[in-house]
Nucleic acid binder design. Sequence first.
DNA 1: AAGGATTTGTTCGTATGTATC
DNA 2: GGATACATACGAACAAATCCT
Lengths: 248, 248
Amino acid sequence: MSGEAGIERRSGVALWRQIADQIRQGIATELGDQNGRLPTEIALAERFGVNRHTVRTAIQALVQEGVLRAEQGRGTFIERQPRLSYPIGPRTRFSAGLEGQARERRGNLLDHAYEEAPAAVAEALELAPGARVLRLETLAEADGRPISRARSYFDAKRFAGFERHFARTGSITMAYRHFNVSDYLRRSTAISARHADSVDLEVLKLAPGAIVLVAIGLNVDRSGKPIQFSETRFSADRVELQVGGQMP
Amino acid sequence: MSGEAGIERRSGVALWRQIADQIRQGIATELGDQNGRLPTEIALAERFGVNRHTVRTAIQALVQEGVLRAEQGRGTFIERQPRLSYPIGPRTRFSAGLEGQARERRGNLLDHAYEEAPAAVAEALELAPGARVLRLETLAEADGRPISRARSYFDAKRFAGFERHFARTGSITMAYRHFNVSDYLRRSTAISARHADSVDLEVLKLAPGAIVLVAIGLNVDRSGKPIQFSETRFSADRVELQVGGQMP
DNA sequence: AAGGATTTGTTCGTATGTATC
DNA sequence: GGATACATACGAACAAATCCT
């Protein structure tokens, strides 16, 4: 093991970005004291085994992101924004899931189109290959911060006009009511992670190099018929996914 | 949006690494024809909006990882290794979960120590602050490939000597048997994602810049008493986490 | 069998970004 | 802040292996 914690040279990832990532992801909480003050730049430089300038570049990037705040003569401080905990289970719902964690929750309609279903989507929704589907591109926000963006597919025949109801209410659950779907269940969710692409960066207002959690899910109505296939991307810095009860 | 898909300049992440990450992810989807052949270097360079050399360094990195294979005069080919699907639920168990996906599953003991419980651990396990716990560092492999590494904590009093039973059997479930725990449940799991640190890179044999899925979980025995608190890091390239039924 | 087209591999040079001291 | 070393990225050739006609 190479002396310094988690910093790799010649990896294709600049040292300042590796350090910024580590500070952002929560090492900040371990590094900071009760007042949220980080160690001095010199101390950080020693800890990571790099030059002070390199630490400064990392800090500047985080200040730009709003994660840190640097005050000349006093020190560098953490701007606290605790991670939201997003529950995944049979009853997965955006707004209800974040109740108590954020005052205001809302979904925004970014885009929509009626088009031919990709093969995987048709199979998941149990539609004929090439059937027409509604594709919905949405952005979920909590207290004004972008939390996730999703691409969802619905049977175009059954849910024609769904996008209008969603745009008005900002809620999938509410929009379903207009189609006599009073209840629905999350049958399955597959979770993976990757680097944010350029659309993620823009829509979720992320910094380059950020990581997104990708949840691919299938919702079914009461009779067990698939009604919604979706891929949701969460900012990994702002959200963790919760399976089962809350952690103590 | 900047013409080329998902590539950000001046981001602190080298272009070749961003491209390598994208190719690695996209293996399942678009890239690669029926024979597993990638588009030519020139075509990829155009697609990503970079020089051919830059694509080449990305490909070389993936060849080094064993993801791709390049043959002069013929092309570049995918070495298929589909992602494992790791189920998370009340019955979360490593070996049983990957049944049918990998022939050989095994846990290896990397390290262990009896020590004072960190505050968060003591609280999760419902122990007195500063109680003694067993810390277990393990590596899980499937068909010889490293899948995940975990740091688990157990009550030192109740599970003294647990590490020996685990080392012999390679299974947490089996080791529990020696302590009259015939059954246990996963009460909760919190899932996040981050860049792999240097220990992850070495233990999981990852390339620098790789992403790990982090699952923090709490297991309880039949009576509901917490018995194991663990943080598991999965290679995001090799594993996806599955909540609920299998995707179709 | 010969030769041209395609595709990966190699070698120059040059400019810019990153990190150190 | 300035000088230096190294990594990254681009451009233009040319070489070598493979495929097809």
